[in-house]
Amino acid sequence: MQALLDAIAAMSLPSEASRIFHGRGGMHPGCEQWVLDAYPPVFVLTSFAPVTDDQLAAIGAALQVRWAHIATPEAPLCWVFQQRGEALRIEGRSETRLMAGEVPDRHVVTEAGANFRVHVLRGQNHGLFLDMAAGRRWVSRHAEARRDDRYGLKVLNLFAYTCAFSVVALQAGARQVVNVDMSHGAIAIGQQNHQLNHLTAGATFLPHDIFSSWGKITRSGPYGLVIIDPPSYQKGSFVATKDYARLMRRLPDLLVPGGHALLCLNAPELGEDFLHAQMRELAPELAFVERVANPAVFADVDEQRALKVLVYRAPELPVSA
């Protein structure tokens, strides 16, 4: 646990949503169970293994000492502890406790100039996936580079969740984003995120099952950018090993000539070769461009276990003789 305590002792006052400590990457032996995130003004400590009251007391004391050094005297320390399912011995379960302070009723955080609603006291997904920060930055830069294209950039955002990709794409100059997610609740928060960022046009929200909505998705295309960021495993909804292929074979028809696809996979048991092999089989005309590097704080002893964000490109139209 010492590496976690050292990270707390060295941290600056966080102004944006960010990860403070990433034990899950295995870079800190003995601390693999711990993750500490900042969703200002709240810290969220997560453990993937059983903890003792003494451990929590030591972490709380370290947070309090550091907070006294970096925050204004009138600002109270606020932190939340979440025990994940592996420690509870029940798959998919978590328990969350408010340890100190108060969580804002309307909790809004920022990242790179964008605002997002979050909810740190319920569920395992807090409304903004911090490990995808580099992916959002790539989308923002891509949209900015195509701001002046003749017809503008049209984006398809599959498994949109709370539509963070859509927000950054529109902020950077995308003409249109079609957001699709089967969760009505997540899409509703996504609409709020657009309102928070004063984005009143350009976004479409489809609270549908992607696999039964291809007709509507296809009619809105083709797209200059298709983003696929599915859960690695969601019972009854998506299983990467069998369902990712159903998405890949659609890509050639969804993309404009020269269009890009951003494929995301957060399954530790599946390396990037899983995506490459399926793309070679199902959409061989798309060329691999790059793997987007994860934020440095998410370093992993095995990058194949970490989040994979891969960019592919469709062929351009042939040049007439």
Rank of each mutant, 00 (worst) to 15 (best):
V51D: 15
V42T: 10
A49Y: 03
L199I: 13
W79I: 09
H126T: 13
D131C: 03
L225Y: 01
L121M: 14
A75L: 14
S320W: 12
G23H: 03
I8Y: 07
A68V: 03
A164C: 06
K216P: 02
L56A: 05
R141W: 02
L275N: 06
P41N: 08
G123S: 09
R106A: 13
H28V: 08
V180Y: 00
S212I: 00
V289I: 15
A143N: 01
R175T: 14
F81S: 09
A287V: 14
P318V: 11
G221F: 01
R89Y: 02
H142N: 11
A299S: 12
V35R: 05
A186G: 06
G135V: 03
N157T: 07
M248R: 11
G152P: 08
R246F: 03
D131H: 04
E86A: 15
R93F: 09
V226T: 10
V226S: 10
E303N: 13
V311C: 10
A203R: 00
A7L: 07
L170Q: 01
V109N: 09
L199G: 06
F129V: 03
G236E: 06
M279C: 00
N179I: 03
V239S: 13
G26R: 02
G236H: 10
Q124V: 00
H69I: 00
N294S: 12
G185W: 05
V109R: 04
L262G: 08
L225M: 10
A172M: 02
A49T: 05
I217A: 01
M1R: 13
V256K: 05
T218V: 10
P252G: 05
Q82C: 04
Y244A: 06
P252M: 02
Q176C: 12
K308F: 09
R97V: 12
Q33V: 12
V239D: 14
L275F: 09
A57Y: 05
Q195W: 01
A57H: 10
